[in-house]
């Protein structure tokens, strides 16, 4: 099977702290992988390593067939990273951010795509606004629009619903689902377990930088021992796994 993202033995150390330890997993086209774990589990570090922002201490990351260490530029061209705290260039307007992104990724029909994305993200009419003039939610939407402009094969999302209003959340979920249906692979980190449960095909639960569980919700549930294992909610499973109550072993 051709995976869009393949990760093998990913490790990230900050001085003496092991933030990510030996993560190995893969994500197929059209698949949504949920990355869940308690605060400080290493989710953001993992996503930053996958996006090529942080150099991994060891391990291998392959995006759409390109090794992120050897062919970083080609790999990055195939992915989009949407951080929890969107960052923009202060002096570029909304429309100029799309123009900038188009040149970087060589998107020739960017104007039509950009209009459609702004429409989808309810940013029409804000084309000439500077980032400082946008609300938190609007910034999040602009970040998403820029990320989707080049139709990436891999989309990495860190808390994608932060700052969005209920309508924005609904649109965002529909948008992510559509990208997955169109063949993009998504890795989504969130503390919102209902969102993860609703959108994700598989889950990667990490704690202390280690993978505690990997698989579909049903598979994880069935692998868990205990009297209420079969009917446990994701929240129950999350608590059991991350507090060491479950008997789930880290995947090889």
């Amino acid at each position: 099977m051709d995976f869009v993202l393949r990760v093998a033995g990913l490790e990230k150390r900050y001085g003496a702290v092991n933030a990510v330890q030996g993560l190995t997993f893969a994500v197929a086209p059209g698949e949504v992988l949920g990355l869940v774990g308690p605060n400080g589990a290493g989710k953001t570090s993992t996503l930053r390593c996958l996006a090529g922002i942080l150099p991994p201490t060891s391990g291998r990351v392959v995006v759409a067939g390109y090794d992120l260490a050897k062919d970083a530029v080609d790999a990055k061209r195939e992915l989009a990273f949407l951080p929890d705290e969107p960052r923009f260039f202060d002096y570029l307007t909304v429309w100029e951010h799309l123009n900038f992104t188009a040149r970087l990724y060589g998107v020739e029909d960017w104007e039509e795509r950009g209009k459609a994305l702004l429409e989808e993200m309810e940013l029409t009419g804000k084309e000439k606004a500077l980032p400082g003039e946008l609300s938190r939610g609007m910034k999040q939407k602009l970040s998403i629009a820029c990320g989707f402009l080049h139709s990436p094969k891999l989309i990495l999302l860190d808390e994608p619903l932060t700052g969005l209003d209920p309508i924005g959340i609904r649109r965002m979920k529909a948008s992510l689902r559509r990208r997955a249906e169109e063949g993009a692979a998504l890795v989504l980190s969130s503390h919102l377990l209902p969102l993860v449960e609703e959108l994700c095909h598989r889950l990667l639960v990490i704690a202390g930088g280690r993978a505690m569980a990997l698989g579909s919700l049903e598979a994880i549930r069935s692998r868990l021992s205990g009297p209420e294992g079969e009917s446990a909610s994701l929240e129950d499973l999350f608590v059991r796994i991350t507090s060491g109550a479950g008997t789930e072993k880290p995947p090889p």
């Binding site: 202060d90 100029e96 123009n99 900038f100 188009a102 040149r103 998107v107 020739e108 960017w110």
Partner: peptide, 23 residues
Amino acid sequence: RLSARGRPEVALIWKNLITRRRM
């Protein structure tokens, strides 16, 4: 005007020139 074709790093130069003009 920044065309979508061409060397991608020109986008950074374009961005910084805009910054100079506006800041």
